[in-house]
Design a protein around this nucleic acid. Structure first.
Lengths: 179, 179
DNA sequence: AGGGGCATGTAAAGAGTTACATGATTCT
DNA sequence: AGAATCATGTAACTCTTTACATGCCCCT
């Protein structure tokens, strides 16, 4: 079972949802650090159901097919807990922009500055979004509460955007130093 | 052409190398934020060569096949520059650990603390490695120098690890607050 | 009448990982 | 004699993206 499967279990552990509802959440990211399309989600749900980690009840829905609401089973909860405590690895290499910066010496100063400024602006915008979400969520709840976990992932996003912005500033400072 | 292709061009823009040398570098990450296996690299090099962005000279090597040294062409350099200045997107969602934290409320305190501590230790170790590399590299060179770009990607790594560690500390502080 | 949202699926293609395969030279 | 390093490739599989496909209901 992949990260996607566990992201879905993590959502269903909070409340039952349909595949459509799950995909609406996941297209715009769960936990600010994972996304998926509906075309990936429907097969993943079928696999989870076959494995007995979720169950579904079908209602008469619009369109040619039934609407299915998925619920996590006790086995699903156990599998999710087991996945959580597996030994961690670091992962999360893969950042296209850093690969670009690796070849930044090929550009002249103006182009380089422009590139980094553009990138900084994207992260600044994202940070602003996250800050407004934070002001809605308020201070973190008790660690046993799903709200706490939600708030913690937001904090990861906030911290990440800030790191990105200050790295861009580090770069810009040096790119703009004496011609 | 994908990020991998441009990572390879970025390496070959510095100096000619064989596929084997490129894969040795890329298995352990270019720019601290991208990695690839040799099985991906060889086909990618063939595609770059067909596209005229790199050229190769074959020498009589060990084993059943020739040893090929790849050199970037003028067209390859141009393609790389064009890729650098393309409008940026943000990308870099996909962080497995944050997806785990999204379900952290399912664990009891001791397990949760253990998980985060373990993760923090990995990032602290990585930070220590990066710091020792920094002390070897010294202060950044001129932005027109490949050494500057190398140093800039290291700075991204340093900044990223620090952000990760302080996020873990934020989490641990709250997980350890009153039982 | 047409557009958007609800709702579910499949197919094809690209990107990445893991495993298979070969064989020479050098070190222990 | 065996292991490690040099050196290059292919095959099978998983994960992700993009596109195709259907059809009801509600709002304007």
């Amino acid at each position: 079972m992949s990260v996607l499967h566990h992201a879905l279990l993590g959502l269903l552990a909070r409340e039952p949802r349909t595949g459509y509802q799950l995909s609406k959440v996941m297209v715009r990211q769960v936990a600010y650090f994972w996304s998926a399309n509906h075309s990936q989600i429907y097969p993943a749900l079928h696999r989870l159901e076959t494995a007995g980690q979720i169950s579904s009840t079908a209602y008469d829905g619009p369109g040619p097919r039934d609407t299915k609401v998925f619920t996590i089973t006790a086995a699903g909860r156990d599998a999710l807990r087991a996945w959580l405590v597996r030994p961690t690895e670091i992962g999360a290499d893969r950042d296209e922009f850093v690969v670009r910066v690796f070849s930044l010496w090929l550009l002249d100063r103006t182009d380089a500055v422009h590139l980094v400024e553009e990138h900084r602006a994207l992260h600044a915008a994202r940070l602003a979004t996250y800050r407004s979400i934070r002001s809605e969520l308020g201070e973190p709840a008790d660690p046993g509460d799903p709200q706490f976990a939600q708030r913690a992932t937001l904090e990861a996003g906030l911290s990440y955007q800030q790191h990105r912005i200050s790295w861009c500033d580090w770069l810009l400072e040096r790119l703009r130093a004496q011609e």
